[in-house]
Write a protein that binds this DNA or RNA. Structure first.
Lengths: 216, 216
DNA sequence: TGAAGCGAGATTGTATACAATATACAGCGA
DNA sequence: TCGCTGTATATTGTATACAATCTCGCTTCA
């Protein structure tokens, strides 16, 4: 699956992955400072690979580094979340347009297999992952790997907040229905209908998340 | 201008900036390996800040790091260049749509000031910079800072190849005319005309660059 | 009172030293 | 000759040590 990963993983890479996961899962909360010595000793490594990991995460937008003051977990304002959803809207609808004509049976089967997983009762903890993979599989036939990687980064940043959304159950069933509809339109190669549903899907997700952010 | 820069710049930041510039200007060519010890002694620093700089550049996509083998200057395939231009097309037309209704006289004046600079005879070495700033100023009123930063990164990656384009003179005058036209449409608030011209502008640039890449 | 100055401790930034891994090449055997 | 293997060298990865900077409470003085 992750064919891009280096075979021999360096400590810095492992730490980057771990810290990223902690941020995504909310173990490290937005605005929280990251003390190098503390985290390094906890992980049983020196500060050198940790610092390299933090530099990488900073470039990816997960932490913010200020000289001589350290790294803090990045926070997204509501405006920034809205902007990220807008970027998704523009790029994902484009990819879907490209992907649908290029889809073969195997792609559609993969989408349906993913949808089955989404229906399993114990999905919630893995929802972020599975949901992204659904979209990824759908856009893969478009053959635009750079865009896909960019979108994954955006999804990761957003998912952190989706996890916090306690009222997710409400939007959850809707998301499943929309995913189901997307597959149907992909099957019938109905590009306009699929794109329009995807637009609604992304906008609905955005609306739900932003509403729940504004409450807090 | 660069208000986002840290006040106290760390060695790692300076090195990252310098290496990025060397890549952009072609002093470091695509595929070329970067030997840490060598570059570090040349710059008079230790390998630690250099390594942090390389991690950052890797996350930004300017170099590729392989464990225990080192960093090499990233190369873009023709397909990747095409994809980057496609992303530009989707995002920049969107930003322009948002920006035009929000433009005030000051923005238009800034565009014209930039265009004047483009007309100066000694522009070629600074073309990459000035050209990006034209687009940046044009999209700034859209109020989408994340997208803008993303686009800057894409421009940087592309500009490296634009610099190589020896026959730039041909596309150069055309670019100036198109920039001129864009300002006119912005002034008249003619969104459809501006967007359509911008589409052509980006496609023209892409076509010219890709043609010259295919020759080599 | 309160605002500026000044350490002591905490924290980050960088250099040096060493360990782990990769690369190049010589020697050996079939 | 060809291919394998082991060793020397080069290069990267990480730990430790130290330097630079920041934080925060205290003092001092207007």
């Amino acid at each position: 699956m992750d064919s891009g990963l280096p075979v021999k993983r360096t400590i810095a890479d492992q730490v980057a992955e771990l810290v990223r996961q902690r941020i995504l899962t909310g173990q490290l909360k937005g605005g929280q400072p990251i003390r190098q010595e503390h985290l390094a000793t906890e992980l049983g490594v020196s500060r050198i690979p940790l610092r390299e990991a933090l530099k990488q995460l900073a470039a990816e937008g997960f932490v913010t580094i200020t000289s001589h003051k350290g790294a803090v977990v990045a926070e997204l304002s509501i405006a920034e979340v809205e902007e990220l959803f807008d970027i998704r809207l523009k790029l994902e609808t484009w990819l879907l347009q490209l992907a649908i004509p290029a889809m073969i049976e195997r792609d559609l089967a993969a989408l349906e297999k993913n949808l089955e997983e989404q229906r399993r009762p114990d999905i919630l903890p893995r929802w972020g992952d599975v949901n992204w993979r659904f979209h990824e599989v759908m856009y893969l036939p478009a053959g635009r790997p750079i865009t896909l990687k960019l979108l994954k980064n955006i999804h990761d940043k957003i998912d952190r907040y989706l996890r916090l959304e306690v009222t997710m159950r409400s939007g959850f069933d809707r998301a499943l229905r929309e995913h189901d509809g997307l597959i149907a339109f992909c099957r019938s190669r109905d590009v306009p209908a699929a794109v329009s549903l995807l637009e609604r899907h992304i906008r609905d997700t955005a609306r739900g998340l932003i509403a729940s952010l504004k409450v807090q």
